[in-house]
Design a protein around this nucleic acid. Sequence first.
DNA 1: GTCTATAACGAGATAGAC
DNA 2: GTCTATCTCGTTATAGAC
Lengths: 213, 213
Amino acid sequence: MHGTGSGPLHPVVSVPTSMYTAAVETSERLIDSAAELLWERGYVGTSPRAIQERAGAGQGSMYHHFRGKSDLAEAAMRRSAEQLRAQAEAQLATGRTAQEKAAAYLLRERDALRGCRVGRMAMDPDVIASEQLRAPVRETFDWLTGRLAAIVAEGVASGELREGLDPDDTAAAIVAVVQGGYVLARAAGSQEPFDRAVRGAVALLAAQAAPGR
Amino acid sequence: MHGTGSGPLHPVVSVPTSMYTAAVETSERLIDSAAELLWERGYVGTSPRAIQERAGAGQGSMYHHFRGKSDLAEAAMRRSAEQLRAQAEAQLATGRTAQEKAAAYLLRERDALRGCRVGRMAMDPDVIASEQLRAPVRETFDWLTGRLAAIVAEGVASGELREGLDPDDTAAAIVAVVQGGYVLARAAGSQEPFDRAVRGAVALLAAQAAPGR
DNA sequence: GTCTATAACGAGATAGAC
DNA sequence: GTCTATCTCGTTATAGAC
């Protein structure tokens, strides 16, 4: 990945001059455009042509910076994964207790009709068929469920949550509720089922407090 | 929908003779082939040509029986929805208590890597953009969440489940866990995250028993 | 680095013969 | 009802000029 624009006019470190010639590099615009289209239409529904048009770049530019559609898509998916991870990390750091942290993650404001930019890719046949393309999706959910499992485990260890609550199973259920909530919302054409699902999950978790607390 | 083959050689009721000429009608094979491909590759990833090849039918046959791709896809999605509904109804009828019924639905054996044939369509941009194509998906999840909400409501009314447990929110969460479980499984390339998520949901529900039961 | 030209192929549908 | 031919457009590149 190259540095993005708005760099210093007088670079203080030795870098290629080309990094400072454009407001935003063409390769950056291609990655962002690809990420948007992958979110909206998935991998099989996104053509190189559409990416180029949205980025305001020609055929030649795209094939100069990337080997092809899958190469650019992988870069775009890695960027989306980074953004989702930063966002989730911020939510998980919000609460004090395990319940508060999980609730902060679940209740984060989301446009459910757009779906999840990372989770969406898991339904794409060409993504699942390619180890290269699936990797960023797998890594994102591995990280997220692991992060939530650690939070639940801490809650059990500290006596906040009841003994016997399985951290891995609970974490998987929490992440699944969010991903499945997107499906329900898009099926219904409404945000409501998503909000119901996450509220339901928060309520189920609230009843897992250790007895006498 | 026409009657399927293996009909009597001497029809006892007055029906068009053509209904008895083939083992399985071409239009039926087209619908089944389309349903399979939609499950595997989604709407944007499925071409009329691929459907025809799988059904062993030519261009002419397809455009004789259906107005085009979306018309055939709608018929295929309605068939898939019927099948899912029958399957879910069987599971929900299994248990005695609300918890048993919900657990029977959640723990049903599924090939998580294949995903849900109905839920999958909710991620497809062309399906969501068309009221016609989205209808069977919306109706299926409306029915399923309504069915589960009624079961939870009965559980609360009978004193099995704690007062204050919201039936609609809980039902949405249950359905979302299953749909999200598919996403996690496909992202991981493994059945495991799906099994964890549904087990986690069953455990969360078990703790919603009314106090003193 | 970016552009245009070209190409081989598939998508999605229509037309008309049989 | 099913077949083959045809059509227009989009996809996913490669080639080479600028």
